[in-house]
Design a protein around this nucleic acid. Structure first.
Lengths: 210, 210
DNA sequence: ATGCTAAACGGACTGCGGTCCGGTTATATT
DNA sequence: AATATAACCGGACCGCAGTCCGTTTAGCAT
């Protein structure tokens, strides 16, 4: 799949060694990587994201624990690897897809649409995203997060928001964080539609529209 | 201190046993509690928040590890206990303090002021708050967080925000989360003034003002 | 003072994420 | 085919948060 591979098959360099890419040399490494991703998905759908521990994954895949960490760097890295296809597909949508999420629509419309899309995306893959964020030292500096943030910033600029678009993008982005969305839906029973509607209201007011 | 004690000297019930309050019976328990809080503060100022591990704290205070967990329930509970005075003081400011943070000023002014105050507060105590959030299952449901959220919601209502004030409060509150603020300042070198200014802009636009 | 009981105590124990290092193996070179 | 070497592999090991349970003790009632 991977329309916009953010370094395809590479994890965000956790330890010092960084990025044993998918195609570089050793075929057994690549094979183990797929083996592990496959086993990880099995564990997740059999039980839950929380059940996906590094030891368990290693034993399930029949490899040593060290191998798991060498491949993915950390638990967060593993989660991101599991998410990377879905993430890349989402990136493709807002960067090259059809309007109003993709380019071609007015910026405010794009903001509204991409927020709604993000909400839907999060409700589908959010458990993994939340787990990734949870044990992430630097969740804000990871490539997909940076790209997402820059995209929001760009849309805000295009929409005519002059005051510190960088911080505005941070503030608005915070309203779409998986932890918050999942909590709203899961604990308080808020519907996705209401989330999207409030996002629309929020972003409309921020760009000074209406 | 504790102007508005959120159950004074009690931790947000973590385990099943919950809330061995400060004054109830056994004086040794209360004594150990103070002993532990004191030792915890020592460790933090000698080293850092990260250096404050439960084992270390227990040994430093000369008690068993079980005692630490019985008193505070979890690491997050300990962090909240360490924060509780500062948190209570802040609550006092926005609920009963002088305007514009406290009551008496127009709602938009109060929103702007309380955000700025929150930013300053976070930059002072944020390390503890971040540590508390980090290992908190239910960081949104803890009393101070709920009170803060409801306060934002109330101000939004008073300011005439009709559309789903609950979610709007969540969204705006997310822009003031310790993790985000500390990241902006610490990693990207954003100044507190710029944070406050952007908050002013954001909240002004949201309430539809000028 | 003495005895009773509920509560507090300590520290061994578990499972987890993450690191390290000696042994192994795939690939390139000759 | 033999060799060299860089990368890979496994699993023992560490520190941490959190749990459990047998033991001790504070406070009360008599």
């Amino acid at each position: 799949m991977s329309l916009i591979p953010i370094r395809p098959g590479a994890q965000p360099g956790e330890g010092r060694a960084a990025a044993p890419a998918a195609e570089s040399g050793r075929r057994d490494a690549a094979r183990n990587r797929e083996l592990l991703l496959c086993a990880a998905r099995e564990i997740v759908e059999e039980s839950s994201v929380d059940a996906l521990t590094m030891d368990r994954l290693a034993r399930r895949a029949g490899v040593g624990k060290g191998t798991v960490f060498r491949r993915f760097g950390s638990r967060a890295g593993l989660m991101m690897a599991l998410l990377s296809d879905a993430e890349a597909e989402f990136q493709g949508r807002f960067m090259f897809g059809p309007p109003p999420v993709g380019p071609g629509a007015p910026p405010l419309e794009r903001l509204i649409a991409v927020g709604a899309a993000r909400i839907a995306w999060t409700l589908e893959f959010g458990e993994l995203a939340r787990a990734a964020d949870a044990s992430a030292h630097n969740r804000f500096d990871v490539p997909p997060a940076v790209l997402w943030h820059r995209h929001l910033e760009m849309l805000l600029r295009e929409a005519g928001v002059t005051a510190d678009p960088w911080l505005m993008a941070s503030a608005l982005g915070a309203a779409l964080e998986p932890e918050l969305l999942l909590h709203s839906v899961g604990v308080h029973g808020i519907s996705p539609e209401r989330l999207a509607e409030t996002w629309r209201e929020l972003v409309t007011r921020v760009v000074g529209g209406q």
